[in-house]
Structures are given as structure tokens and as C-alpha cells.
């Protein structure tokens, strides 16, 4: 499954309003709930935060990829959020995180989960791509950026 297959404007939020790590996770999960892709927000939150406790998924250069394997979803599910001002996500370089890719995967779909995460890893290596995303002003724009890349 290609990453673009997981991205539609109803799973993208620009800009994110939250100012803390836990609020960001909740805000992105709410996006998925509102899009009809998630029912049990609390269980998903617990799964994401359990993974975060093992080590933050806040990477370098403003990228964060919170993720979890959980049975609260039936299929691979992604939410994208952009916080132009940045939020402390306990990133490894200590910098605020601006681009968030929250992914939930059901057990038994490890292959597609890994492929999608690795596509995110590959894309976010490009500073130009990340800069373009951070400058996006709407969900439509974000979807278009992924489609054009």
C-alpha cells in the first residue's frame, strides 16, 4: 500500500492548535475519530503513549512519527498534522517538532505498516519536502504536495 493511499484531506490538520505532546497526540487522534477512522480514542491514545514511554518518536529536524500497533483500527491509519510554530515532543535533537505523522496499525498488517513508515522516513529526509509541508496552509495543499512529490 502506497502512503498516498492513506492520505486524504479529512486526516490532515493544518495548523495544529495544541501546545504539548499529549495534546498533540489527542488532537491527531480526534482528527481520525472525526474522519470515521477510529472509535476508541482513549485506547488508541494509551497505545501511542505506551510506545512513547519506550522512547520518543520525536526525530531530528522537526519531524515526529508517533505510532502503535493496536486492535482499535482494522486497517492501517494515518493522521498528519502541522504545527508551524513547533511543539516540544521530546525530540532527540531537542528541537520543537513541526510535522507529525501519527500511524495506527492493526496486528497482522506489519508489512504495510513497515512500508508506510519507511516511506515517511524516506520522504522526510528531504529538507525541501519538509519545508514545503510546513509552509502548507490547508489540508488540500498537503494532499497535493504528497501527490506531486
Amino acid at each position: 500500500m502506497a502512503l498516498i493511499d492513506l492520505i486524504s484531506k479529512d486526516v490532515v490538520k493544518v495548523p495544529l492548535e495544541s501546545k504539548t505532546k499529549t495534546e498533540i497526540v489527542r488532537e491527531l487522534l480526534k482528527v481520525l475519530k472525526d474522519a470515521g477512522k477510529l472509535e476508541n480514542l482513549e485506547k488508541a491514545y494509551d497505545a501511542i503513549m505506551a510506545r512513547e514511554r519506550l522512547g520518543s518518536t520525536g526525530l531530528e529536524d522537526g519531524i515526529a512519527v508517533p505510532h502503535a500497533k493496536t486492535d482499535v483500527v482494522d486497517t492501517l491509519t494515518l493522521a498528519i498534522g502541522i504545527s508551524p510554530g513547533g511543539v516540544d515532543f521530546e525530540a532527540i535533537d531537542g528541537k520543537p517538532s513541526q510535522l507529525f505523522f501519527l500511524m495506527l496499525a492493526p496486528p497482522g498488517q506489519s508489512g504495510p505498516h513497515i512500508e508506510a513508515l519507511s516511506e515517511i522516513a524516506r520522504l522526510t529526509k528531504s529538507k525541501a519536502f519538509c519545508r514545503t509541508l510546513i509552509e502548507a496552509r490547508s489540508a488540500d495543499e498537503v494532499v497535493e504536495i504528497f501527490r506531486e512529490d
Binding site: 513497515i114 512500508e115 519507511s118 522516513a121 524516506r122 529526509k125
Partner: peptide
């Protein structure tokens, strides 16, 4: 088994060893 993708995820620190 796409271990290359797995390696990439560990290198990019999205995945922990565990």
C-alpha cells in the same frame, strides 16, 4: 521479508531495536 525497510526505520530512529 523486507528487512531493508526495517533497517531504515531503525536507522532513522522511528523504530527501537525491540
Amino acid at each position: 521479508i523486507n528487512t531493508r525497510a526495517l533497517d531504515d526505520l531503525v536507522k532513522s530512529r522511528i523504530f527501537l531495536q525491540i
